[in-house]
Amino acid sequence: MIFSGAAKGAGVLILAILAAVAIFLLVNAWPAISTPTDELSESVHWIKEGDSLLDYVGPLVFGTVLAALIALIIATPVAIAVALFISHYAPRKLAQIFGYVIDLLAAIPSVVYGLWGALWLMPQMFPVFEWLSEYLGFIPIFQGPAASPPRTILTAGIVLAVMILPIITAVSREVFLQTPTLHREAALALGATRWEMIRMAVLPFGRSGIISAAMLGLGRALGETMAVAMVLSPGFVYSFFILQAGQQQNIAANIALKFPESSGLGVNVLIFTGLVLFAITLLVNMIARWIVSRRAEFSGAN
């Protein structure tokens, strides 16, 4: 009884913490919301004259989602494949080492990913981007000229992808390993090839795990501050040009860059952007939940 009470209490405590964070955000963002538009751009000098709060936040939301989407599109398939490789393809001894290394990589601070992105990745990316803009430039998103150095949203997306890859991999691998041995052996006994076994036994079993792993990765990609701040030349327009510099910016990086020198209403505006980021993740999670719930619940055996 005490045990179940403690468990329930912990759950309620989490709700309380979350409520406290949300209330704090709202209270601190309120001055920015309640100030009329013309007064806002007058007292916060980095808001263009005549722009409302939403005009300012819009491009930031766009940039945040774009960077996170690029990262997710690149990272998820690779991460699932790597997780399958480690759990079902690699020799068992090697698999343990790989698993260990992946766990380790999940812990590298984002500052280091930023350093690596700026110092190592950037020079490697330039020829690729130049090639893309030259031969695929007719596709609007690849329109050139490719920026030199390539401090663009695509680079940021790739760095984010590398960053969330270990997280998605680690969680999905753990889930894949939990596939009941009976399911797998049954599939193999029926004459399935290894790939068919994975498709019929492992993937359906791990689906909700994969989605929550991807959400975990997305959460980190959406809120990532330092790595983005270090590899992206920010801009504030709705722009799909992922090879050009100074087009998009991510909310968290914007807060980090502006916060130290801000005061008064500027801080309130930045906290409002934090609130918006919060709302985005809420939306994303709701969508993910909906996707999961369309499938039958798959908890334990039976």
């Binding site: 150095p149 401090r151 801009g235 050009q244 510099a245 100074g246």
Partner: peptide, 12 residues
Amino acid sequence: GDWPVGGSQSAQ
């Protein structure tokens, strides 16, 4: 203190 020209290369 905030750079006024858009679409440029910039760094922290």
